[in-house]
Design a protein around this nucleic acid. Structure first.
Length: 789
DNA sequence: GAGTTTGAAACT
DNA sequence: CAGTTTCAAACTC
């Protein structure tokens, strides 16, 4: 690994120049090359020794960590791309690494990536790009020089992909491939390659991972000494500690080259071919984001694998499709924002031609995801750097490269920034195949880039994502659109606005609020929320952020507790989630979508100033689920509604009910009493604790993640989907997580009824408990966040 | 499809 | 920070 990688790096350096290597490295590389011969055997041994260990760690770590840290991790990008498989291993690394990553990985990789991009851009002409795009669409991997990388990825990926199926196979082969590819292609993509390799290796489950880490270690150590034992011991250490760097590198690698996805493969076959490439890239690009999202654990890993696998294999494993679909959604969200940023850069660098480049690289990866998501994590590092708050815009501004163009084109409408919300994807029923179908159908033949703006991403997600797609696309009427969206369950991802006066540059605009560009389906007038007006959009976002840093942050925050504790339930149960600011409903009883809490599928919390809260998902009181009781009590009028609930909600409501075990109890506790009364949040069950950990349940901001150092993707506000919520938690932006959602954000006590403690945690109960919560929350949340970032 | 209601966002 | 206005979604007819 190390050799191949280094070699590639050298070559790349020649071409690209510079970036890759520091003098030390070059030396190390040379040395390593010489040493490598010797090392092989020892290294392998070393790896072998290591590999067993890691798996164990990985497993445990994932489980333990995921709940708390993962949310952060995923956001980090860190190793995510590596893959679900890796995650287990890297879990620690990620956390540890995250901090380190920025330095090491970000610098080198980012630079490399940029170089690549530039190179590619310079090399490729627009025509070539177009050709590539077409190829990609066709399923062919692009052949251009820049594209070579993609090929490499593909090839290497293939093995891995298969490996995924059979974990055992493949590690070394992949390595060999890597080396070859690296040497042969000597593409700028060197970064990519490593990444791919890693991905593939990881896919193989691990031993490979060790290798990677080892390779790095080897480099460092080779120079100094040949003592294998020492190396091994060191390596082991390194693996643990340094691994982060490795992960970083992976991330980096993924970001740059991989960042670009081919827009969409038309055919399954194409898919397959693309998929072959895809794993690497996807893993690489999406990988981070994906991982971020996926980190959750074994299950996540599996899903990811499945995704990659599916994509890669093209295999059409239907089984995985669903999962993949989910992930895709996840990825998209994440990707989107990242994309946005990355994309823009990319565009800038490439001078707009990027799309092709992106396509190429992406194309290779093109998997369903790609189609769906144009996004790529792209250069996470750069993004990470961005200080911005999590706003998507920020992310965009900062990380132009990431943006991907979704070419979708058309059919759909346009381009959307992918919203976090692609919640649709998550919907169980449709997900996989539908998405694929949609995607396929949608196949973006067009990729014409309007320009940089376009780069931003047209997200297909809405359309692709789901149910919505076809219908929505066709339909223009805002109402229909909305409803569809709701029905689809998507909440925000595919939002369609109908703004008349706000120019879609205010939070009134759902699209804007979600960090997404308005698309055709939108019925907005005078819309400035389009790629063309990117500058304006970004500026506006900044202004809004300056006013309220969390303006674009997910509105719904999930309590970590729920995650860890409740586990399944928590993820599902809305109860754990809370609206960051809380609602202020006066007349709706929090039983209609007017209520953001209700709309987000979460219960009202202390932060809420609502009157007569009947929120079926949970009252302020913390009475938790409530539902019926409350409703019964006060709302006689509302009752019908409750039962009815919005169609869109029904699903969620049902789920919630199941999860929450809604108190069907009619008795209604007087709404107010419950609410205000502060029934103990804790009493309600999980709420208090949940609140304590702020996890973001839904997120409105697509971009958001990036803004904060890490590119977290805020999941779209899942207004309806709870699935999202669970996922989101993981995805939650670090900052969000760190701070108690509510507390951190704002203490709401407008009315003074309830004041969230300063730090706010969300604490449901005012009073003493709140204090407790604060402590707990504050502590866990922040720490976790920082490390990753 | 038009009009009303609602509550968040924006403004003062 | 509080009150008011603006806005667009949600809802109703």
């Amino acid at each position: 690994m190390g050799e191949g990688f280094e070699i590639s790096a050298k070559e790349s350096n020649q071409e690209e120049g510079e970036v890759m290597d520091t003098p030390e490295r070059s030396k190390n590389n040379q040395i390593a090359a010489s040493i490598s011969k010797f090392e092989d055997s020892p290294v392998f041994n070393f790896l072998n020794s290591l590999s067993p260990i890691k798996p164990v760690k990985s497993i445990h770590i994932t489980q333990t960590i995921n709940p708390l840290s993962f949310a952060t991790l995923p956001s980090v990008f860190t190793s995510p791309h590596v893959s679900s498989l890796r995650e287990s291993r890297f879990l620690r690394r990620h956390q540890l690494s995250d901090p380190s990553k920025p330095e090491f990985s970000s610098d080198e990789r980012s630079t490399i990536d940029t170089n690549k991009v530039n190179i590619e851009s310079s090399k490729q002409s627009d025509e070539e790009r177009e050709n590539l795009n077409q190829r990609v669409s066709d399923g062919e991997v692009a052949g251009g020089p820049s594209y070579d990388c993609s090929k490499l990825v593909v090839e290497s990926a293939e093995d891995p992909s298969y490996d995924f199926n059979s974990p055992n196979s493949g590690l070394r082969p992949s390595c060999g491939l890597k080396a070859k590819h690296m040497a042969d292609y000597a593409c700028n993509s060197s970064t990519l390659v490593p990444f791919v390799q890693e991905a593939s290796q990881r896919g193989s489950y691990g031993s490979e991972v060790n290798i990677e880490g080892v390779s790095q270690v080897d480099q460092d150590k080779d120079v100094s000494s040949c003592d294998w034992e020492n190396l091994i011991s060191d390596a082991s250490n390194l693996l643990i500690f340094e691994s982060p760097n490795g992960t970083d590198s992976y991330k980096k690698s993924t970001d740059p080259g991989t960042s670009f996805y081919a827009s969409i493969p038309n055919d399954m076959q194409n898919m397959h071919s693309l998929c072959a490439a895809g794993p690497g890239e996807q893993a690489g690009e999406g990988g981070e984001p994906e991982h971020l999202s996926t980190q959750p654990g074994e299950g996540s890993e599996i899903t990811e694998i499945a995704d990659s696998h599916d994509i890669i294999a093209g295999s059409s494993k239907m089984d995985y499709e669903h999962l993949s679909g989910l992930y895709r959604g996840m990825r998209r969200r994440c990707l989107v924002f990242e994309m946005a940023g990355g994309r823009r850069k990319h565009m800038d660098e490439n001078s707009g031609s990027d799309s092709s480049a992106m396509l190429q690289s992406d194309g290779s990866t093109s998997s369903n995801d790609q189609k769906l998501l144009p996004m790529r994590t792209g250069n996470d590092s750069s993004r990470r750097v961005l200080p911005g708050i999590g706003l998507h815009l920020n992310a965009l501004a900062t990380t132009p490269k990431d943006y991907k163009i979704v070419n979708h084109d058309s059919s759909a409408s346009g381009r959307l920034l992918i919203g976090p919300s692609t919640s649709v994807n998550f919907h169980p029923s449709t997900t996989g195949q539908e998405l694929l179908n949609n995607i396929l159908s949608v196949a973006p033949s067009d990729r014409e880039i309007d320009g940089i703006d376009n780069a931003l991403l047209p997200v297909e997600d809405c359309q692709a994502s789901g149910y919505m797609a076809n219908e929505e696309i066709n339909q223009n009427s805002p109402k229909k659109k909305r409803r569809r969206v709701e029905q689809s369950g998507e909440g925000e991802a595919c939002k369609r606005c109908n703004c008349k006066k706000s120019k879609c540059l205010k939070l009134y605009c759902e699209c804007f609020a979600a960090g997404v560009y308005c698309v055709e389906p939108c019925a907005c007038i005078d819309c400035f929320n389009k790629p063309i007006h990117e500058d304006t959009v970004l500026a506006t976002r900044k202004q809004i952020e300056s006013r309220n840093p969390l303006a674009f942050a997910p509105k719904v925050i999930r309590g970590p507790d729920s995650l860890s504790e409740t586990g399944d339930d928590s993820s599902k149960t809305p109860a754990s989630a809370r609206h960051k600011r809380g609602c202020n409903c006066k007349k709706s009883g929090c039983l209609k979508k007017y209520c953001e809490c209700y709309q987000g599928g979460v219960g009202c919390s202390i932060n809420c100033r609502c009157e007569g809260c009947k929120n079926a998902f949970g009252r302020k009181d913390g009475s938790g689920v409530i539902s019926t009781e409350v409703e019964v009590e006060e709302d006689e009028t509302d009752m019908p509604e409750k039962s009815m609930l919005d169609p869109s909600f029904q699903n969620t409501a049902v789920e919630n009910d199941l999860e929450q075990n809604i108190d069907s109890a009619p008795p209604a506790t007087p709404l107010r009493a419950g609410r205000q009364s502060v029934q103990l949040p804790f009493s309600s069950k999980k709420k208090p604790p949940r609140s304590s950990f702020p996890s973001i349940g839904s997120s409105s901001g697509i971009y958001a993640g990036q803004g904060f150092g890490k590119p977290r993707f805020l999941p779209p506000p899942p207004k309806f989907d709870k699935h999202f919520e669970t996922v989101r938690e993981e995805e939650m932006p670090d900052f969000l997580q760190g701070g108690s959602p509510v507390s951190g954000i704002k203490s709401l006590s407008p009315n003074g009824k309830r004041v969230s403690p300063p730090h706010g945690v969300v604490g449901t109960s005012p009073g003493l408990r709140s204090s407790r919560k604060l402590i707990l929350q504050s502590i866990p949340s922040f720490p976790s966040l920082t490390p990753n970032q």
